[in-house]
């Protein structure tokens, strides 16, 4: 779908020329605009600070009619991200019923960043992390920091 590639190219240009703070974007393969490598700094003030997290953003061929998929490639211990090799996450705007074609990748990235700052434990994928986040914040922060040190350096 040519119009899809055109739009992706535009968004890529936008994100690379004017990247959101703490985020760098590159293509996995220069010939394919559908797969993006994202490197996201752990936001200051969160237990992920200091870490560098790699993510893979996959844009479907019928983007922007269908939402992109984003996964953490770096392991991250977070209530809303599965703590495994998939690093699946749930971001509200990526849910099919919430996705609108005029939503942009930029907002996906900032939403992801926001999720690192503010986990949503009620909508958790990682129950253990969510439980600690809710009931024992200090413990949560400590553990998240350790995992960050271990994986995201």
């Amino acid at each position: 779908m040519a119009s899809s590639q055109k739009r992706i190219s535009k968004e890529l240009a936008e994100v690379t020329t004017n990247p959101p703070a703490g985020i760098t974007v590159s293509l996995v393969d220069e010939a394919n605009v559908h797969n993006w490598n994202i490197v996201m700094d752990g936001p200051e003030g969160s237990p992920y600070a200091g870490g560098k997290f790699k993510l893979l953003l996959v844009l479907p061929t019928d983007y922007p009619f269908k939402p992109p998929k984003i996964n953490f490639k770096t392991r991250i211990w977070h209530p809303n991200v599965t703590f495994d090799e998939h690093g699946s996450m749930c971001v509200g705007i990526l849910k099919p019923e919430a996705w609108k074609p005029s939503s942009k990748i930029m907002s996906v990235l900032t939403a992801t960043q926001q999720l690192l700052i503010e986990p949503v434990p009620d909508d958790a994928l990682e129950a253990n992390a969510a439980e600690k986040f809710k009931n024992n914040r200090a413990e949560f922060n400590k553990e998240a920091k350790e995992w960050t040190k271990k994986y995201a350096k």
Binding site: D62, F65, I93, E97, K100, P101, S102, S103, S107
Partner: peptide, 17 residues
């Protein structure tokens, strides 16, 4: 696309929110 797929709920403004 939405109507062909029967996804009626999507037939609304495309602006987020």
């Amino acid at each position: 696309n939405a109507i062909t797929e029967g996804d009626l709920a999507s037939v609304r403004c495309l602006t987020p929110d």
